[in-house]
Design a protein around this nucleic acid. Sequence first.
DNA 1: GCTGGGCGAGAAATCGATTTCAGAAATCGA
DNA 2: TCGATTTCTGAAATCGATTTCTCGCCCAGC
Lengths: 337, 337
Amino acid sequence: MGSRVTIRDVAAVAEVSPATVSRVLNADQRVAPELRERVLAAVERLGYRPNSQARSLRTQATRVIGLIISDIQNPFFTSLVRGVEDTAQASGYSVVLANSDEDLGKEQQYLRVAAAEQMAGVILSPASSSRTRIGELVHEEIPVVTIDRRIAADVDSVAVDNVAGARRAVEHLLQTGASRVGIIAGPEDVSTAADRLEGYRAALRAAGLAVDPELTVRGDFRVDGGHRAAARLLDRPDRPDALFAANNLMLIGTLDAMAERGLTAPADLLLAGFDEMSWAGFAPPLTLVEQPTYEIGRLATQLLLRRIAGGTAAAEHVVLEATLKVRASSDLVRRAV
Amino acid sequence: MGSRVTIRDVAAVAEVSPATVSRVLNADQRVAPELRERVLAAVERLGYRPNSQARSLRTQATRVIGLIISDIQNPFFTSLVRGVEDTAQASGYSVVLANSDEDLGKEQQYLRVAAAEQMAGVILSPASSSRTRIGELVHEEIPVVTIDRRIAADVDSVAVDNVAGARRAVEHLLQTGASRVGIIAGPEDVSTAADRLEGYRAALRAAGLAVDPELTVRGDFRVDGGHRAAARLLDRPDRPDALFAANNLMLIGTLDAMAERGLTAPADLLLAGFDEMSWAGFAPPLTLVEQPTYEIGRLATQLLLRRIAGGTAAAEHVVLEATLKVRASSDLVRRAV
DNA sequence: GCTGGGCGAGAAATCGATTTCAGAAATCGA
DNA sequence: TCGATTTCTGAAATCGATTTCTCGCCCAGC
């Protein structure tokens, strides 16, 4: 490495000891102003940057937080990542990003890396609510906050009220005139999928309708799975008159399946989904339950930083509101106008 | 930190010196089989994991490579990231991901982090071909490989032949019957944008057509910019009879603008784009110039690893082929069938 | 005038690994 | 059998920072 500048070099130039240089840089008060001046000048002149490995070896603390998300391809996470980065950087932490791809093995591997690298903390969108294992992090006393989804372990979490969000969407579909609402639900072992399914059922029951198990089909939160699930519902002789897709990618699959069959919303059936989708400019505009993604990232990071600072209170579960945005895909009136 | 196991603990249990433990773990040949056994057993029993900070402090080499991409939201990068991760992991390196968001300031900051963390190398999709500054990395002798785009500096690069790809797409549009082809081009200071524009012009010239400057509109490689650019072209009194969008997100913006105006492809105009888009299930299926993204990531990582290992040859520029996939959006015949 | 307390700065220990160096044991050749 | 060489192992130095320990100095209090 190109003859890197060390703290000794700075000390030599400033004519003080390395200890004094360290004190100046770590804002230790008890250094004479004159020495401080000399040190800062030397740092400036030599372009000194502390070696972060040496520092964290000594202090036993890194200033890196890991962000492990379950699907980098899902735009839902993009603005969330930004919320995490902004908040972390404001506190002098840097963020490393990893993509578990909804794969437990990969997730495990990244969790292991986080433990090995002694990261200050980890924000995790777990691939499974029951089978994700954070034991290694717990063992190293590395704090964890889950986002979007919860797990069995006793850790902080930040998520939206998925039950209420889904319920609101399905109630809206019913009020707009649907009577047979199908749901393209998510994987069984993901908490958000379970919650959204529960919201769907609650809406039906509240409207005095029976929950027809035939109208619930599970996908995998991906485009293909959504496509297959939607196809099964659309090909039924008694086709549903409305569909609710439990996440954004599966809604794309649903639109795909509809297009293949020459069906459009809201003319042939009403359509609603979950998660923002402005990145995909579909016609018609889609009715969606939207989440405050940036805010989720920001709050999760705040919780994590508090833990890192030593908070030992009981696990905190922040629940934000998801808001229903009604657009043309479910709105016969607006469409008519 | 929960009483971490160190090399001394292992040495004590195995009744050897720390030096011997280190040699066993670093595959040093000259250790007696019996001692080796004892050490491995102790490592296993204690669940010992070397502290990577201490190791890289001593060896002056980390096993981390930085991957700085220009837009995490663009699915083009997803499979590329996978190519990088797989290849890096096979050689024992881990990958940290950063998103510059096409923002020179953010990019600068991540490059600085990479230098400060003494990363082994950096794979970069530069935000600008002329204003991206890799000076700090060069100074630290950290190798860099650019992907997708090139920069002025003398570093390895991996990209597709953007000129040929774009040319092929536009030639196809012309052969299918278009005579006035508009292009939604990318930002001026990104090499891929320049190359694709050149390919477009080459195709027109080869067909003996004049290049009408009115039919070239620049976007920003994002959905919104594509939307605005397409709107300008579509609202002309002499509307083009074909459009070529220089990347995937701008093609979405284009579809958006078309939908607003009640236009569909290929009936009203022929449509082709650049980059894979299977994630967005559009109807009609889109004609696209597709890149071997996984392969780009794999090759870039191989080049980087070679540099890290000490290769000092002249900068290498790998150029892969981009293949045109003709689908319904530009194919009047197939549509008719 | 002497002692004790407080403060500022440097010397040295420390973090946890790798690697050099040196010494003991084993091997080899004559 | 003896010396020379090689092989293996452990002690100690090292990487670059932080932090404890220690010491000298100054000032207040008696």
